[in-house]
Amino acid sequence: MPLLCLKDATIKFGGLTAVNKVCFDIEKGDLFGLIGPNGAGKTTCFNLITGVYEPTSGDIDFLGTRICGMAPNKIAEIGICRTFQNIRLFGTLSALENVMVGAYLRHKTSLLGGFMLTPAVIKETAELRKKAMELLSVVNLTDVANSRACDLSYGKQRRLEIARAMATDPKLILLDEPAAGMNPYEKDELRSVVFKIRDDYEKTVLLIEHDMKFVMGLCEKIVVLDHGEEIAYGDPSEIRNNPKVIEAYLGEPV
């Protein structure tokens, strides 16, 4: 059984069909790429998968259960988490606290206990903090753990987004343009982080990226969208030589 399965997923915004009958399966352990020109509907795909929007028609299954119409927090709970293309960190909270919010999803104590600050809650909070610190070190942000998220540089904010999503302990993690705005050095660093997530933490990764070199060197399977339609699917070499893809990118070396 595939981990995630899109069946004819479609969404219309008024007259615009942003995603049109897209189908693909993601198996456990995949490093899956989603590419396409600007406005192709990639982010919208993420929004469908994470429950921000409900598909107009079609189905999305995760581990065999239909997730269309589920609240985003429920979807996060069953194991899908994401980063945002237009960074959405909790600005005035510290980097550490941002990651702790992600980790909070797996809390076990009750909210009433939180209001009373029971020993169990204190203990759990300390555990979440420890887990968050660990994830910060995975993305090399330990030194800025106590800085406010909004004060971090762009590249660091992107990595913080990844750590925060990782903290929810997802089975599938969706990364929306994680390398945007990064310099080559940061991109290399990011590449090793993504591999670490997949290999050491055994997560399945679905990522959107415009940097072809980055995607081709990272992903094992790639889906290409254009104007909401799925125009190609395959491994990097197949995608590179697909005439439709070349046409969609209009001469851009793929």
Partner: peptide
């Protein structure tokens, strides 16, 4: 407590908070 972070997260960004399972 960590529970408080959920409240603060809602204040900061509802959509992101929800995506993180709050």
């Amino acid at each position: 407590s960590a529970h408080g972070l959920a409240f603060l997260a809602v204040r900061e960004d509802e959509i992101a908070a929800q995506a993180m399972g709050v």
